[in-house]
Design a protein around this nucleic acid. Structure first.
Lengths: 245, 245
DNA sequence: CGCGAATTTGACACCACTCAAAGTATGTGG
DNA sequence: CCACATACTTTGAGTGGTGTCAAATTCGCG
């Protein structure tokens, strides 16, 4: 029995999203744990729930209302990356900050869980599920980064972003020297790149030629790219930084 | 001790992706279970591992090589939706068919798990993790559907796709009559729609006006859309069907 | 060396963007 | 209740970026 109740308090059993939200498969014992760690928060239409990069001290479910997940390029172009309807989940376990702008577009009520106890519920064996969850969330972040590229970037920015992403994936375990020349081994044909970026292969070819003409990249054969100055390439991506660096 | 070994057999302890793949957090007992249900398969460069809609009798990890995840529109336009590198996971628990085209772009070795025993490892309590995994995978599917829209569809197709998606989300629990008139309550402004679809708000407005002129939709106020014949709207989406119907 | 595939380059068209202005709701204060 | 302000939407005119179609060139490999 709760000692104090705010006007938004609600027993899980009476919750309108009980059968669809993250708690929908929980049995009585788990539900009791959640009941203890939960609290409600409300936001007015138009309010920002979190900016990208902000600390997000909770995770939780949308109980009522609609919110959006979005990201903004340095010059102000924005792309919506998700629509959060009742029962959808907000936040990511084990990550302290929000990767996205979260905005309430109608009045919104959230059922929030304090991060730490919620995470503790996830780390019990079998660990395979825990790891699969983590990997799926990484995939989701990658897909959303990709959405921003597909929706809002120019052909040149798309090419620069792709080169940057591949460069950093290859160099993941090397010393991260941003001022040293970098060699990128392209595993993709021009056509595969065009498929990746939502362009035609001719446009891909033209943009690569243009970057070469301007000395931002050098080609060694068709499948190797040398970047003499990674900062100059980064300046062509349209983003201040690539998120998963 | 395994009774028979193929040339691809490998002890988990010696596996090159042991520390990054889905099994990376497993302890000895879980690893022993996986060892029992796993088998290796190889694919040559260029081979298709699965077409969208095919039965996929396993889930598993990429051990070696690079594969792509993609989808194709009815007229042949394609969009890549994911790049699968060593340690990445293929397939989705509890789903029998592949939602995407999976292609090997280099020679690929997969460590496959039989679906059923793998799923059984995921369904133990706490169920909150299980449900969160399921929801995250739904989000990932939605993000990838969105990627196809952003990367390869025209403005008109984007609008038609958005209306279709919202219509079916709203009617999720109603009778799925495809021939009856449908009313869609748009929760989004023109600007929000443009953010969603990677368009400008002017283009959104023009396309909606065009669809109205042609009688494919009717407007009731600015925020309500009536679709007299859903089949005609579907014909404008560029897809044979919207996947999550 | 010679073939086929991949890539580059060119010319042109068109879709979607930009800038601008007019029209339409919605709500506020007099 | 009306006048006005504000936000949203629609429409127009003109431009530019990217797609389309076509041809030339280079690369990779037997």
């Amino acid at each position: 029995m709760a000692i104090k109740k705010s006007k938004f308090d609600l027993q899980c059993a009476d919750c309108p999203i009980r059968h669809r939200a993250v708690c929908s498969k929980c049995e009585a014992d788990e539900l009791a744990l959640l009941e203890d760690m939960k609290f409600y928060r409300t936001f007015e239409a138009g309010q920002t729930i979190a900016w990208a990069g902000d600390d997000l001290t909770f995770v939780g479910s949308v109980v009522r209302g609609v919110a959006t997940l979005g990201q903004t390029l340095e010059d102000g172009r924005t792309q919506m990356l998700g629509l959060l309807l009742p029962s959808d989940f907000i936040g990511r376990p084990w990550r302290k900050t929000s990767a996205y702008d979260v905005c309430a577009i109608t009045d919104v009520t959230l059922c929030c869980f304090r991060r730490k106890p919620f995470e503790d519920m996830l780390v019990r064996p079998p660990h395979i599920g825990e790891r699969l969850l983590e990997m799926t969330m990484d995939e989701l972040d990658a897909a959303r980064e990709w959405m921003l590229i597909l929706g809002r970037k120019t052909a040149r920015e798309k090419i620069a972003s792709l080169l940057t992403i591949i460069a950093h994936r290859e160099q993941a375990h090397d010393v991260p020297k941003i001022n040293a020349p970098v060699t990128i081994d392209l595993p993709l044909t021009r056509e595969a790149m065009s498929d990746y970026l939502g362009l035609t292969l001719e446009t891909v070819s033209r943009q690569i030629s243009a970057l070469k003409r301007e000395g931002i990249i050098l080609l060694e054969g068709k499948r190797k790219v040398v970047v003499p100055d990674m900062a100059r390439l980064l300046a062509q991506t349209g983003s201040d930084a690539i998120s998963h660096l």
